[in-house]
Design a protein around this nucleic acid. Structure first.
Lengths: 149, 149
DNA sequence: CTAACTGCAAAGTTTTTGCAATTGC
DNA sequence: GCAATTGCAAAAACTTTGCAGTTAG
């Protein structure tokens, strides 16, 4: 027969570690890096390993429960909010905020016709100076947030 | 201490290596990675080192002559076209194309008022399947690291 | 029971840095 | 000359993988 075998679907088990990673991501507002999540996780589960964090981020991403962002070149960041939304990023301190959902929708679908692409999704990133960085000309960036670009 | 000294501005010298990197980037249409640029550069200057490529990419970026893209999580890509334009990326093969400049402008500046940010620039990335990938096997949803490039 | 999951350590990638020699101005 | 630049190699930063032991179903 034609190889019509179903996908060798992997059956997931639950794990404390994966739950923790997801919970951290959902309750943080800073679009953190894997390393930041790892440090956070150690506070609740001291023996958790970085490999486990990376593996679970990958699984959660494939499950569609979290999103992997390309905001900083050379480093992946994660977002526990999978709803369609835009980001705004500070050029000075690297902080990334969510844009209010009311941001005007563009009719992206038209792009498909122009390019031949079959459009699935889109993302907009706006860059500038956050309120804090506009004020202090001092290099008081990063606060308690995750790493800088 | 009235440290009012002017910026210790660094005076750039020209170098064959930097010129080569810039020329490669301007004549390539594939939004390449640093490594791709390095391999390309070796074809013209066999002794060039990867460190030199990285250093020059950084300098060119700071000079504003090229742009660093965040398209693929965990790896930086570069663009020799610094004009404002959008990108469209294939979810299957990872290829990144430019969008026609006619793409409708959004009034981004309004975002400043809503967020308190001082807006400098913005970028839009649209994702989907490129014409080639729409045809062959239907194993989409891969989010792979572009095998192309 | 057994396949998924974990911690650890080792390896793989991508990017940066220290240093002596070279080069542009 | 002097500082910017280079090649090399080593280090740092980020991510994945192999393996033996553990755990959920």
């Amino acid at each position: 027969m034609g190889d019509t075998m179903a996908t060798p679907e992997k059956v997931l088990k639950s794990s404390k570690q994966r739950d923790l990673v997801l919970q951290i991501l959902r309750s943080s507002m800073c679009h953190p890096t894997a390393d930041w999540i790892y440090e956070e996780a150690r506070k609740h589960m001291s023996k958790i390993s970085k490999a486990t964090v990376y593996r679970n981020l990958k699984i959660l991403k494939e499950e569609g429960k979290i999103r992997e962002l390309s905001i900083s070149p050379g480093i992946a960041r994660y977002d526990g909010d999978i709803r369609m939304h835009y980001h705004i990023k500070c050029l000075k301190c690297g902080r990334v905020d969510d844009l209010p959902h009311v941001f005007p929708q563009v009719s992206i679908e038209d792009v498909g016709e122009a390019t031949g692409y079959q459009v699935h999704s889109h993302r907009m990133e706006i860059m500038g100076l956050c309120p804090d960085c506009q004020n202090d000309g001092i290099r008081n960036n990063q606060m308690n947030r995750s790493p800088i670009l």
